[in-house]
Each structure stands twice: as C-alpha cells, then as structure tokens.
Design a protein around this nucleic acid. Structure first.
Lengths: 120, 120
DNA sequence: TACCTTAATGCGCACGAGTGCATGTGTCAA
DNA sequence: TTGACACATGCACTCGTGCGCATTAAGGTA
C-alpha cells in the first residue's frame, strides 16, 4: 500500500465495479458465442436454425447461447410466426462497452498518480 | 439472413474476433478479481499478503488471481526481496478495452445498415 | 546453521457451465 | 385432426475453475 485514492474517488470506483457487469463480460468471453456474433455480423439478422446449420454445436446449444446474449443486451430477438430472429443490439452493446471504457479511463487518471506521466 | 456485410467488412470482423481476447474478458468477468482490482485502485500498489488480508479467500487463491491478471496485462508485478508487489497496468488495460470498443464501433457503423438511423 | 516469513504449487473437492440427446410445447398447413 | 417444423427444456455427462489445505521453495534474519 503506497499510493491511495482520495475519498471522492471512492464513488467513481464503486461506479466502476458496477460497470463490471460480470454476466455481460462472461457472455463475451465464450468463443462459441463470439463465433455466433461474427456470423450474425457477416450475414445479418438470422433465426436459430440458420445459425445452427453453420455451427458444429447442437441446435439446442445455439438456442441457449442466443438466449443468453439477448438477456445481457448483446442481441435483440423478434418472433415471427414460428421463427425467432436474432440481430445485434447495436446501441446496448456499444453503450455498455463505451461506458465501461470511459469509467476505467477516468479511474486511471484519478487513481494512478503516475498515469499522466507514463502517457508520455 | 436479410442483411449482409460486403467482403471488405470481413477483414474488420476478423480483426474484431481477434480483439475478443476471451482470456482477458474471462479474467474481468470474475467478481473476486474485480474486488481485488478495486482494492488496488483504492489502496495503490500492494503485495499478496496485504491484499489477502482484506479478502475472504485464502492467500493462495489471491496469489493465483493476481498471477492471472498479470498474465492478461491487467496488472504489473515487481519482485522486491520476499515481497511481490502488484499494481494496475494502466496502459495495457485501457488500451485493450479501447481497442475492443473502437473495433466494435466501426463494425456497427459498417455492418448494421440501420445503425446510423437508429442513432437518432 | 536454524528459524521465520512470503509466495508458489500439488492435491482433492465442489460447483458451474457447455454440450448433446430425448422429449415437450407451440405454431402453421393440409 | 394430423403431421411437420421451430424452438424450449429436462437430463446426464464432461470439463474447467474457484476454493482451501498442506507442502515446498526461496528470501531474509538471528
């Protein structure tokens, strides 16, 4: 313990810890889910069956991954008759990441005294 | 499959998938590790024993968490006699997140045709 | 030397999560 | 009503990993 944050910084860090949505980050840390994300980015909105056809995993597995990604705000889903179409939730996805990045940036400048100097 | 990316976008998406460093994201998705991160932010550079004293987990567990966070570039470590001091790796940490965010932002604007309109 | 402190490592346990199969539910068409 | 199709769900299996205990290794001190 050599350097320390002022009491006012504590609020920012609490806010940061809040922004570390572990469920969100865990969702993005699974390679299979990133592959699904990539597929949708390349091919656009698609239903479960179409996505599953292009993945080695079972249809039920893909279904569960899509469901999870929709829960954490990475994807949107729209039901059309028997099909459920998933698409990238551009705003929610980007907002979450930019929020996290911005918070960490402000934490660094406030809580790492040497940071500004390091940033040549 | 309704919309689709042009072939030139494929490179950006491949780059994006690369940026989805699953080990990095997985590291940040563990609440205990975020708690350790918070502790170091609040109290500055600290050794394993000091951090472990302030956590419910066993010293060996903290040691392993710190080691992992150092591996993925979130922390730096410096050995001083018997003590190993860990600190936030401001640059590497922030750079990784900003890189990921920037790539996703460019993917959104290129691959989600409706994105610009949605952005009111 | 012997002893203490600090950290790393090996081991086993417990829980969570990804997976595939089998089955259930709901929707649509004939 | 019957059948086909799309997706969800329950179950069991496997693997990864967080965890704590016990031990070892390494550095410092008397």
């Amino acid at each position: 313990m050599e350097t320390a944050c002022s009491r006012s910084d504590r609020d920012i860090i609490d806010e940061l810890v809040e922004a570390f949505d572990s469920k969100f980050l865990k969702t993005l840390s699974e390679p299979v889910r990133v592959e699904i994300l990539k597929f949708i980015m390349l091919n656009g909105r698609a239903d479960i069956g179409t996505i599953a056809e292009n993945m080695p995993q079972d249809r039920s597995v893909i279904s569960r991954h899509l469901n999870l990604m929709q829960e954490v705000g990475v994807l949107t889903c729209e039901k059309e008759s028997r099909h459920i179409f998933y698409d990238i939730n551009c705003h929610a996805f980007l907002d979450k990441l930019e929020n996290l990045t911005a918070l960490i940036r402000s934490c660094m400048t406030q809580c790492c005294p040497t940071f500004c100097n390091q940033k040549e």
